[in-house]
């Protein structure tokens, strides 16, 4: 089976440069300070933010002039076709570190000295690009929590079909069957790269087209999420008087 048919269609009917459908909802939970639910195709993720709050663990090690970021990435046991035994394993510990690294580049931690920010993400349904969707969901949840960030952190994946055509936003099938897959997290306005990872060796000649395609995917996701956030704020903002002090009903 080819990842890209002769007509230029992928296994799920997309063209090589097309992304999956994005749907999201902000403020889905009441208990955390910020939360978001994000779907990219069949990959579904929830994120919750607690904080900034007083540091509860490891207070001695905490820096005095910036916030501690605490992340947890987990996958629901029912998220894949084969049931997982535990929601967190070695693989998720690695992704937790990557997530922390990517989010820490954007959060203005110096504004929250002696505080802690907890980021919890959970994959509810896994269909490729789990890490990327988690980064995007965490960004939305951080914005919902009103935590200061330099800009969004947006992530996207890309792969190579038939050794020549870059595929953007790959699904689980393309992840397992295809060639090298590349995950990139960027700050879309300045174009800085927050995280870059490939699953295997990738030929130097292929790196540039694959990376360019992934970054283009990030930009597309950014524009979409930005629109969704603005729409959400327009809906709930009026009732809260746009966060201003002059309360008048």
């Amino acid at each position: 089976m080819d990842l890209l048919s002769r007509q230029g269609l992928r296994t799920d009917g997309r063209r090589s440069g097309e992304l999956r459908r994005i749907r999201c909802k902000m403020g889905v939970f009441n208990q955390p300070d910020g939360s978001a639910y994000l779907e990219q195709g069949n990959t579904k993720v929830v994120a919750a933010i607690y904080g900034p709050h007083e540091i509860r663990t490891n207070r001695a090690k905490a820096p005095n002039d910036s916030a501690v970021i605490n992340c947890q990435y987990s996958m629901a046991t029912f998220s894949r076709s084969e049931r997982k035994r535990r929601p967190r394993d070695n693989k998720s510990a690695e992704l937790t570190l990557h997530l922390k690294q990517a989010m820490a580049t954007a959060i203005k931690t110096d504004l929250y000295p002696k505080s802690q920010i907890d980021i919890f993400v959970q994959v509810l349904q896994s269909d490729g690009g789990n890490y990327s969707v988690c980064v995007n969901a965490a960004t939305l949840a951080l914005i919902d929590a009103g935590i200061a960030m330099e800009e969004f952190v947006i992530s996207c994946t890309s792969s190579l079909a038939n050794g020549e055509t870059p595929l953007v936003d790959i699904s689980h099938l393309e992840e397992t069957m295809g060639g090298p897959s590349l995950t990139v997290a960027i700050l879309p306005i300045s174009g800085k790269i927050a995280m870059l990872e490939t699953s295997q060796r990738i030929h130097i000649n292929h790196l540039e087209p694959v990376l360019t395609e992934a970054v283009r995917g990030c930009r597309y996701i950014y524009e979409n999420l930005n629109k969704i956030i603005k729409k959400h704020y327009e809906e709930i903002g009026g009732a809260l008087n746009w966060g201003t002090e002059e309360y008048n009903i």
Binding site: G146, I147, Y233, G237, W242, G243
Partner: peptide, 23 residues
């Protein structure tokens, strides 16, 4: 540039953006 999502407020020359929800 803004660091949070919200509406701009001006007091003379001071520009602030206040989030809809924070601690």
């Amino acid at each position: 540039k803004a660091t949070v999502a919200g509406v701009e407020q001006n007091i003379n020359k001071l520009v602030t953006v206040s989030p809809l929800r924070c601690r």
